[in-house]
Design a protein around this nucleic acid. Sequence first.
DNA 1: ACTCAGGCTACGA
DNA 2: TCGTAGCCTGAG
Length: 265
Amino acid sequence: MQTRFITSDYSLKDTLTCGQCFRFTEQDDGSFLGVMGDHLLSLTQNGDCILVCSDSDIPETETARFFGFSEDYSAINGILCRDPVMAEMVRECSGIRIMAQPFWETLASFVISQNNNIPRIAGIINRLCECFGEDRGGFYAFPSAEKLAALEPDALAPLRCGYRAPYLIDAAKRVAGGHLEEDYVRNLPLEEARKLLMTVNGVGPKVADCTLLFGAGRLDAFPKDVWIKKAMARYFPSGLREDALPYAGIAQQYIFHYARSHGLE
DNA sequence: ACTCAGGCTACGA
DNA sequence: TCGTAGCCTGAG
């Protein structure tokens, strides 16, 4: 089936390639092919129109929420633009939306992402789905936490994820055991949510913040990777404005995208 | 043979 | 509490 979504100031390419998700790849014709939950999707953007082709029926609200088609960042961007340096970044990067990906999938993906590059992360996740995810006829769903929780680290050898294998299984056990409920984590004060996630072996500050931002709707989480640390020193030596902190995660995406395209000299 | 990749753990001072 | 060596793997 095909569905059209009308968006405003939305960039499908920037949203899908800014490093928040690993299961969508650009095709030769400029469309994006990838997996959302139990569905294989093809997406094409033409101006404000996004055409989504799926293998089966999906409620429009589910797709819109996942990709952020209906999110309106204009009020938030207005606040961020009170800082002139940030205003310049907003001007270039405002098409990016923070997606709403499944909590467990996000946690597992960013455990894999540590000290790793994006093509290899995507490869490991593909093998993870092929080896342990359910066959949906033509593609594989992301495996459940319960499925991985029952495995020994050696069973993950085909993934070639190295020392991250036991981390992944530890995370799976915690989620499968009900010790990391998405709704509970989502509503915790930021520092408590981070601390709780960091009790998982293999989850440090960066992975915790990525999980909160991309997989739990916490726009105040601010993942600090090597690029952001350099970019903050270069562009915001005294930190973000206080009124930007509730949306620090959105600002993080703008800063990252801007730093990547302009360099840091 | 190296380095580096959107880090983390374990260990030492 | 703070700083950092070492780590699986694979591309350049």
